[in-house]
Design a protein around this nucleic acid. Sequence first.
RNA 1: GGUGGGGUUCCCGAGUGGCCAAAGGGAACAGACUGUAAAUCUGUCGGCGUCAGCCUUCGGUGGUUCAAAUCCACCCCCCACCA
Length: 373
Amino acid sequence: MPTPGNFSLLTTDGPARRAQLTTAHGIVETPAFMPVGTLGTVKALCPRDLHEAKAQIILGNTYHLYLRPGDDLVARHGGLHAFMGWDKPILTDSGGFQVFSLSSLRKITDEGVEFRSHLDGSAHLFTPEKVLDIQRNLGSDIMMVLDECVPYGADAEYTEKSLALTTAWAKRSRENHAPGRGGQLLFGIVQGGFHKDLRARSAEEICALGFEGHAIGGLSVGEGTAEMYELIASTTPLLPAEKPRYLMGVGKPLDILEGIANGIDMFDCVLPTRNARNGTLYTSQGKVNIKRAEYKDDGSPLDPCCSCYTCRTFSRAYLRHLFIAQELLSYRLNTIHNVHFFLELARGAREAIETGSFAAYQARYQAAYGESP
RNA sequence: GGUGGGGUUCCCGAGUGGCCAAAGGGAACAGACUGUAAAUCUGUCGGCGUCAGCCUUCGGUGGUUCAAAUCCACCCCCCACCA
């Protein structure tokens, strides 16, 4: 039985890789898409739905779970796996993204991040160490270090300072959490904004610290697709090939395939779940806005090529009706489908890499979703 | 029969002389969403338009006025209460 952290490369197709990452709660076949379950739930789904969609690993969020219900409470209930009834791997984000998205509520210091709760305004301090303590309470399989997600458009001076801080925090994180401790893996995060030289420096500094995996953070924060792809292409090769590579928060179907083409192994994104709730559904033929009037009388399935429960059972007309009527089932059926689609996207990519046909696989989606960038 | 209240753009509903094609909400029609403060947000929403404007509209008809959804007269509906 391989130990958590073991990452075995099975095969490659150009820079694209097919591998297995071992965690305390099982093996993750990569490339993998990880549905986001910020508050200990992939919104609108229950673990049964996730199993049916063949989800291998999901995300939880340190910041949000710390504030509510509290990581100590989760620990008292046996950790996040037991608490939410999910026995497969969980990756917890550190709260670094919230440092970015809730920027008006926080202040960054060398020590960490002082912030005010978006729920009740109470003051808190996140340090690299504190964030790991929380993630230990949550009992996630993969923990993320605290980082600063630099806003798009930040100049070199700010980015460089931020980068130094992120590296210092990463170092403290590694010192606080020895490899193998508690079976919990620790991933470092490369930042550096949109300055290639700073990205390279960050990659060098972060990868020198001996994390079990490496993430690229700070992308899809407002930049254009071309710029994002350029950065993925230039940064990914700087991450050690023998460790998993995780592109944080990305992305759209084509973004994910582009990442895989460049050698990324793991992805997470709120798009399938959020868009499901907002009526945008992903199909083999491209995006479908299910609230459009043209689907009012459409008795065909959302995507005839899809094997999810939603597509096997219901018509577009019914899905539109549920959405327009704001029925709760709408959110569930839409999310079941979108999550299935993203997981299937990754599963198909794994298969394509195994057969050496990833380029053709990517091209098929480019045809359906528009040439990119 | 009497008294009082009311009829506004698809719906509800503000507006009581000019700044009104008429607040606000809903519906409708589009669009956005990338480590989730998101079951959220944005746009359009009388017609025409070379975007300056022009035309039609506030129960009906007629009138007052430079100007009326707003004032007056009569008429038609609706609601409440009293007989």
